[in-house]
Measured scan of single mutants.
Amino acid sequence: TRVETATETAWISLVTALHLVLGLSAVLGLLLLRWQFPAHYRRLRHALW
């Protein structure tokens, strides 16, 4: 049971790290898009909202 718990903890930390990385890359990508294509971003936002 001790090994299982350790594996579970490792998986949880791995998944958390993955989610953090994905979230950060998504935010960075959005910022980059907004910085590179302001007109396109505004049009996209206008279409979405």
Rank of each mutant, 00 (worst) to 15 (best):
V27F: 12
L44T: 07
E4Y: 13
A17F: 08
H19C: 04
I12P: 03
W11M: 06
L31A: 12
T7A: 14
T5F: 00
E4K: 13
R45I: 06
H46T: 07
S25G: 06
V3N: 01
L28P: 06
V15G: 02
R45C: 07
L24G: 05
Q36C: 07
L24I: 10
S25T: 13
V27G: 11
L32H: 12
T9V: 12
T9M: 11
L30M: 12
E8N: 02
S13L: 14
L20S: 05
V27Y: 09
E4A: 14
A10E: 09
L30Q: 02
A6M: 12
E4M: 15
G29I: 12
Q36W: 15
L18S: 00
H19T: 01
A26M: 11
T9E: 11
L18E: 01
Y41D: 06
T1G: 05
R43L: 10
S13Y: 12
A17M: 10
A6L: 07
A47G: 07
V15S: 03
R43Q: 09
Y41Q: 03
Q36A: 15
L48G: 01
L32G: 01
A6F: 05
L31W: 13
L32R: 06
L28F: 08
L24Q: 05
L32Q: 06
L18V: 05
I12C: 03
S25V: 10
T1Y: 12
L14M: 14
T16I: 12
H40L: 09
V27I: 13
L31G: 03
Q36L: 12
L48Q: 00
G23V: 14
S13P: 04
I12H: 07
L24K: 06
A47N: 07
W11I: 05
W35G: 15
G23N: 05
A47S: 09
E8C: 05
H19S: 03
L32S: 10
A6Y: 01
L24H: 09
T16H: 01
L48R: 08
R34T: 08
A17R: 02
H46A: 05
L28D: 03
L20W: 02
V3K: 02
A17D: 03
W35D: 10
L22Q: 04
L33V: 09
T7I: 11
A26N: 00
H19V: 03
L18K: 03
I12L: 10
I12F: 06
L28N: 06
V15Y: 00
P38Q: 14
W49V: 00
W49L: 00
H46Y: 08
W11V: 06
A10Y: 04
Y41M: 11
E8Y: 05
T9I: 13
L32E: 03
L14P: 04
P38E: 11
H19W: 03
L28M: 14
L28C: 04
T7N: 12
W35R: 15
T5G: 01
W35I: 15
H19I: 01
L33M: 09
L22K: 01
V15N: 04
T9R: 12
R34Y: 03
P38K: 13
A47I: 08
F37D: 04
L22V: 12
L20H: 04
H19Y: 04
L24F: 11
W35P: 15
L31I: 11
G23Y: 06
S25I: 05
F37R: 04
L30C: 13
T1F: 12
L33N: 07
T9P: 15
L28S: 04
L24A: 07
Q36H: 15
W35N: 15
V3T: 01
F37W: 06
H19K: 05
W11T: 01
H19A: 05
R42D: 09
V27T: 11
H40P: 15
H40Y: 08
L33A: 12
L30P: 07
Q36D: 07
S13M: 14
T1R: 10
A10I: 06
H40I: 05
L22A: 10
G29W: 05
L30E: 01
L48Y: 03
T9Q: 09
L32C: 06
Q36Y: 15
L32M: 11
L28T: 04
T9W: 10
A39E: 15
V3A: 04
A17N: 01
A47D: 09
S13T: 13
W49T: 09
L14W: 00
A47Q: 08
T1V: 12
A47V: 11
P38R: 14
T9L: 12
T5K: 00
V21E: 07
Q36V: 15
L28Q: 04
R2E: 12
L44I: 14
R34L: 05
G29H: 04
E4L: 12
Q36F: 08
V27N: 03
W35L: 15
G23S: 09
R45E: 00
W35S: 15
L44D: 06
F37S: 01
R42M: 11
I12N: 04
L44H: 08
H46M: 06
I12S: 05
R2W: 11
L33R: 01
L48K: 05
F37A: 08
L44Q: 00
L30H: 07
E4C: 09
L32N: 07
F37K: 00
R43A: 14
W11R: 01
H46E: 10
R43S: 11
R43W: 06
A39W: 11
R45H: 03
A17E: 01
G29R: 02
L14K: 02
T16W: 08
A26H: 04
L28Y: 09
L44N: 01
R43H: 07
I12K: 13
A39D: 15
R43I: 02
G23D: 05
L33C: 14
S25Y: 01
W35Q: 15
E8F: 00
H19D: 05
V3D: 00
R45Y: 10
H46V: 00
W35C: 14
R42A: 14
R42L: 12
G23R: 02
A26E: 00
H40R: 08
L48F: 05
Y41C: 15
P38N: 10
A10R: 11
R45N: 00
T5W: 00
T5M: 07
T7R: 14
V21W: 03
T9D: 06
S13Q: 10
H40V: 10
Q36K: 11
L32V: 14
V27S: 08
Q36G: 15
L18G: 01
A39K: 15
R45T: 11
S25R: 06
F37N: 07
S13F: 15
L28G: 00
P38T: 06
L24Y: 04
W11C: 06
V3S: 02
R43E: 08
V3W: 01
Q36R: 15
V3F: 06
L14D: 03
G29D: 05
R45D: 01
L18W: 13
A10V: 06
L18P: 06
T5N: 02
V21I: 10
R42E: 12
L30G: 13
L18C: 03
R43G: 08
A10P: 04
T7D: 07
L32W: 09
T9S: 11
T16N: 05
E8A: 03
S13K: 05
L33Q: 05
R34P: 01
S25A: 14
